[in-house]
Design a protein around this nucleic acid. Sequence first.
DNA 1: GTGAAAGCGCTAACAT
DNA 2: ATGTTAGCGCTTTCAC
Lengths: 343, 343
Amino acid sequence: MTYTCKDIARKTGVSISTVSRVLNKKDLHKVGERTRKKVEKIIKKTNYTPNIIAKSLVSKKSFSVAVALEDFKDVVGPYFSQIISGIAYVLQENGYYLQLLGTVSAKNKPLSQHYLQAVKERRVDGVIILSEAINEKEILGLWKDKFPVLLVNRYIRDKEIPSVLMDNEKGLYDVTSELAKLGHRKIVFMAGCLKYQLDQDRLKGYKKALKENNIEFDEKYVLEGYFKYENAANALNVFISQGKKFSAVAASDDVMAFACITTLKKNNLSVPADVSVTGFNDMLFLPAVNPTLTSLKVPLIDMGKEAAAKILEIIDGKQIPDIVSLFKPQLVKRQSISSPHAD
Amino acid sequence: MTYTCKDIARKTGVSISTVSRVLNKKDLHKVGERTRKKVEKIIKKTNYTPNIIAKSLVSKKSFSVAVALEDFKDVVGPYFSQIISGIAYVLQENGYYLQLLGTVSAKNKPLSQHYLQAVKERRVDGVIILSEAINEKEILGLWKDKFPVLLVNRYIRDKEIPSVLMDNEKGLYDVTSELAKLGHRKIVFMAGCLKYQLDQDRLKGYKKALKENNIEFDEKYVLEGYFKYENAANALNVFISQGKKFSAVAASDDVMAFACITTLKKNNLSVPADVSVTGFNDMLFLPAVNPTLTSLKVPLIDMGKEAAAKILEIIDGKQIPDIVSLFKPQLVKRQSISSPHAD
DNA sequence: GTGAAAGCGCTAACAT
DNA sequence: ATGTTAGCGCTTTCAC
């Protein structure tokens, strides 16, 4: 049997308003001590829990936040899952629920329709956008409608949309500089997806480091692996088969870095003796991997926590002190890099 | 501006029932062609989306399903994330939303309170339980209340609670048999957590294989790694320091298998020359890992899909043909096993 | 202090 | 074929 506040009122012999008052501890000073106790007793006895749906209807708050992923397959893999884990933790601590939304490929529905519908249906009080599949116009539309939105590792140029970011430019700058310092002159940048702002920024850092070390930029040395193992392996394979010279690969992702290592081995190139390889996010550190991967450590879980904390502030209508939080990647050197051959 | 069905009715010059009818395509034959078109036009023009909260209140359906995890940190890591990915996919395809719930550690709240509250608040139409932290009594309570529940890789003895399972007993039986066939006589079983049914079943398979190969069971050869890298490494370290002889480790998880490989290397034992190692779930296959891991492949994403499909059937009140779906693990042999030394 | 009543945005039974 | 109306379970104002 599932009870309603009406049942509780009847059982206690009071009105539903009184029940509501003690339930929400609101205007409690207006409720008699004895009445309150009586109501509380019945609530406990019946194990009554208010219907949140009804509450939402009148309060216009769902106490839940959506996390918009591009594809549910993204949950698999340490990048998104760490961010989500951080978000989930903070939301739960604050009594909020987390809805996981996909932005592509729902049956019979165009791109992003499913996620937008959830928002418009007022299922959620805010959205944290991890997906790159949602276009800027849509996001700006929501923001203009005063709907709480927050972007993670993504931002919209010249617009004041709250974002939680990592310093992508500095990340690739650091890693490229390190490789140059070791003596590398032909460095491949295995980007994820160059149409993403994130890889544009990394490209910028890569170029900056090249320039500072008097290495000429050659766009043929920029490959795209789309953050997928197979794609990265293919891209590097094609590059190798073209006979291009190179002694290092800076990848935009640890998974792609592993793809590069495997591909190099298959081409009888050893890592790091022949080619140095670096990753990004330092999310896949396994001591069993040989060689262990040099990567850029980013506190993904903390970024998730920050994202959740921030969207809650926005939902609560608080003034947000900073539109942007910026996390710094930290270079972690391991076995996958060394000085190049002297040839 | 956010519209209600009343607004649409007023703008179109019809009643709200008519709006509701065209919205839900229900009793549509009773609506005039022209009226329908008129309503549809206004809906399109105003970009109106019905308020799902109100709809839920009357229909007593939230169109969302909860996935109960023990700890949000669990999303990180391939085991849970693959299952979740499968669940999310099927739910979305069926127009359902996914709520992620934790079952421990919400601030000020005892174990599992948060998840139970979500259920009782009628936020969700059903729960898929991945967590081991929810006790059997609670689950049985929900089931008795006719609340749709489904367990994944977990079941309750002698109770007909729907479950999506993998054949844990056969998995460890297969792997242990293979090791015995190679000539191993001293095989360590690195369990996750022996109080879980899953590891009890695996233990059973392990024992069965030992018996069939005339190897005496010794409980000292059963360790617990709690599915964590550090714990497994510690447990094996302690075991090694006790001077026990062994030539193989069958782990209940790939992560623990990697922990074992690293620990063995640190103890100057090479894999597989000195000690063979196997994993479970085959979820971390990386060609870059040396040696590549022998493991039991389980279709985790498919298990997630099956779980979602099943909970939807239960929610729809359909007769469920099988209380249990059983997925078979498949032994994938790679470099981490070989015959033992001849000493 | 407590209760009655209106209303949140929708559905569905019942009129017309 | 279309409209009227009574709720769904709660919050909140306003009486008493």
